[in-house]
């Protein structure tokens, strides 16, 4: 086992400094629900782990001028019952509910989820993010049933492991990123956080050595409604085969604006812009949901073994929209 230092800073600046040392060969420890798997399999070999859980500001959920700010060390079970999140952000709550593992709920964090490494079995078997061998993609002609159906024409063919990104993007969330210098802070929309890597070293996010997510900020305008549908095969600890999160402003039963984001279908969360655009001006019905879902998966380019995932993604979008319709109809709107 590779030996590493363990650091537990008490301020954000200290954390940034600790992460930037060792030439940036460091790792952030939040919930640790996946980091230890990666360490055990020698997929990462950081010289230092920086544990964020003792930084007071990172353990808080606070109200902001336009929504809520969630610290990177706040666990999912805390979020599930936090009064500031109660009754809103349905898309987010649905994801927490879908994580049927009490262990992951009680240790895992939003920021940690956004940084998860792919579950791609080639990556996890040591072939790198791009799963190349002798200049050839192992995914392209191999066991690709769980791989990307969208955005898979580049070298990356895994699917983004983040369960929360679709919901956060649909909700218009931003990330507060600290580092690499102790006093540097960047605000970034969640959709700008993810990268479809061109090389194994590039990683899956824009984070540079020394940077970490300190907070997730979710705006709340009072009118936007949201929903998520995850397609899960089993009731236990499981990863979705596809997810869709949607948000919309609906008035008088008509969609005024909408966002549709799919998860686990591409190397990054996948925003279905034109499908969302097509929804604007329509009523949310079984028919409109189905035709918008068709549009959302229309650009799919399935690999040799995963055409079925197109159907699953389509269903996720349709059902997320229908869940949204249920919410707006119970509020007196017309579904």
């Amino acid at each position: 086992m590779n030996h590493f230092e363990y650091a537990r800073p008490s301020t954000e600046g200290e954390a940034a400094t600790l992460l930037a040392e060792h030439d940036g060969n460091t790792a952030v420890l939040a919930g640790g629900t996946d980091l230890f798997n990666l360490l055990n399999r020698d997929l990462v070999a950081p010289a230092r782990l920086v544990d964020l859980k003792s930084i007071p500001s990172l353990g808080e959920v606070t109200e902001t001028l336009d929504g809520v700010r969630i610290g990177a060390a706040v666990t999912l079970d805390t979020l599930a019952r936090h009064p500031l999140l109660a009754g809103r952000f349905a898309a987010l709550h649905a994801v927490i509910d879908g994580i049927h593992s009490i262990q992951v709920q009680s240790m895992g964090t939003l920021a940690g989820d956004l940084c998860l490494a792919p579950n791609c079995w080639y990556y996890r078997s040591g072939y790198g993010l791009l799963a190349m061998r002798d200049g050839e993609s192992l995914v392209e002609t191999g066991r690709n049933e769980h791989h990307a159906i969208l955005g898979n024409r580049g070298p990356a063919k895994f699917v983004s492991a983040s369960r929360f990104a679709p919901a956060l993007i649909a909700l218009g969330a931003r990330l507060r990123i600290v580092g690499p210098s102790a006093d540097e802070v960047t605000l970034l929309p969640v959709e700008a956080f993810f990268v479809s890597p061109k090389t194994d070293r590039q990683g899956t996010t824009v984070l540079r050595p020394g940077q970490f997510i300190s907070h997730v900020e979710i705006p709340a305008d009072g009118e936007t409604r949201s929903a998520t549908y995850e397609v899960l095969q089993t009731e236990g600890l499981d990863w979705p085969m596809a997810t869709a999160s949607v948000s919309a402003v609906v008035s008088s039963g008509v969609v005024r604006s909408a966002r549709i984001v799919m998860g686990h279908v591409a190397p990054t969360p996948w925003i279905a812009h034109s499908a969302a655009q097509a929804l604007v001006g329509q009523r949310l019905t079984e028919e409109s949901a189905a035709s918008v879902a068709d549009l959302a998966v229309a650009p799919a380019t399935p690999l040799s073994e995963n055409e079925y995932k197109v159907q699953i993604a389509r269903t996720a979008v349709k059902r997320a929209l229908l869940r949204l319709a249920e919410q707006t109809s119970t509020e007196g709107g017309v579904a």
């Binding site: 049927h100 579950n119 089993t234 009731e235 499981d238 990863w239």
Partner: peptide, 12 residues
């Protein structure tokens, strides 16, 4: 591995 070699859980 026990993630990808999936067994039934109580809910299944």
């Amino acid at each position: 591995n026990l993630k990808d070699y999936a067994l039934s859980r109580i809910g299944d």
